Each structure stands twice: as C-alpha cells, then as structure tokens.
Amino acid sequence: MKADFAPNERQRWMQVLARAGDALADYESELGGVPYQCIRKPETGMAMVRGRTGGTGQAFNLGEMTVTRCVVQLQDGRAGYSYIAGRNKRHAELAALADALLLGDEKEQLMQAVIEPLARSQQQARQTRQAEVATSKVDFFTLIRGENE
C-alpha cells in the first residue's frame, strides 16, 4: 500500500538521505529485514556541476563530480532511487532502500526513526560549521581620506 506524500516532502527526505553519508549505516537495522532486489546496482559515474557567478549570473560549467546511483525494488513493487555525491556504494543502496520504504505504510515510523534524527544531526553540523566560519570573518570598511590643505 502506498502512503500519501507531497512531492516536496519526498525531495526533503531524499536530500537528507543523500547527505547522510556513513551515518545512514547507523540506521540499517530500521531499514533491514525487508527483501528487495537491486534493479540498478550501485554504480559510480560523473556529473557536470554548473555554477552561477554571484549566485545569480550567467550559468557556466564549474566542473565534474563523482556521483553514485542505485535503484532498488521491494517485493510489493515499490521502487526507491538514490543519487549521492562520492563513491560510497553502500550509502547509495541504503538510501534507495529507505526511499522505497518511505513510499509505503512504513513512512511515519521511518520519518521519526531515521529521517528526523539525520536531519537534526545535519542541521547541527551545519550550525557548527557556520559558527566556526563566523569566528574568522573579517569586516572590511572604507576609510575616507581627509583633504590636506
């Protein structure tokens, strides 16, 4: 049976799963025990990253990055997908499995047990990084030279 969800809700959990890294392995017991098959085994490739000057300017090709993708299918037909930065194949497989499980009746339980703790951890890490960077911030100002007569 499929759970109802808004598209932006799925985007959020896929974003959290993609950023989880090795921390996702800590939640393997919540995801495990469900038989699945890999439709597309974890495979690593390259993706072009685009940037914008000043964040709003003309788009340009910044460079390539390594990406690993995976597609799994549960016995009931639900399919889960993942695209993660880097080469961690286990992370890609677990993220795809979590995505498939979140599409069903397990959604609420997994949101509470996996997604929310990971999201809180990621937010805390982001705040810690921002605080560290803020200590090295330099405020530049302009001095106006007075006229010497």
Score class of each variant (00 low, 15 high):
A20S: 15
G86M: 01
Y36G: 03
V138T: 06
P117M: 02
Q109D: 11
R19F: 03
G146H: 09
F60H: 04
C38Y: 11
R129G: 09
R10S: 08
Q112A: 14
G86F: 05
L103Y: 15
A131P: 10
E28T: 01
K89C: 00
E108F: 13
A100P: 14
A25P: 12
L103P: 13
G33W: 11
R12T: 05
E106A: 11
Q15R: 13
R87C: 02
L103C: 15
Q122V: 01
L94D: 15
V72P: 13
K41S: 10
D139C: 07
G77W: 06
Q73M: 04
L62E: 06
G21W: 07
Y36W: 09
N8I: 03
E64N: 08
A96P: 12
E64A: 05
E9G: 13
R90S: 02
L24T: 10
G51A: 13
W13E: 06
R87K: 10
Y83V: 00
V71C: 08
T128A: 12
L97S: 15
M48W: 05
L94P: 15
Q127R: 05
Y27L: 00
M111E: 15
V72C: 07
H91Q: 07
A59T: 10
L110I: 05
L97C: 08
L94F: 11
P7H: 06
Q58Y: 09
G86P: 10
V138Y: 07
S121P: 09
M111T: 09
P117C: 02
L62D: 08
L97I: 02
E132M: 08
E93K: 07
D105Y: 12
N61Y: 08
Q15K: 12
G51I: 02
A92Y: 04
L31Q: 15
L101W: 14
V138D: 05
L74A: 04
A23E: 14
N8M: 06
R10E: 15
V133D: 12
A6L: 15
G146C: 04
M65L: 10
T142H: 12
G63S: 06
N148V: 04
Y83G: 00
E149Y: 12
V67W: 04
E132P: 07
L110E: 13
L74F: 12
P35N: 06
E147N: 08
V133M: 13
N61I: 01
L118D: 10
Q58R: 09
V49R: 08
V71L: 12
D22P: 07
I144S: 15
K89L: 00
R78D: 03
V67G: 03
F140I: 05
P42V: 00
R129N: 10
A20E: 14
A85N: 10
Q130K: 08
Q58H: 08
Q15L: 04
A131I: 03
E106R: 13
D26W: 02
L143E: 13
M46S: 04
E116H: 09
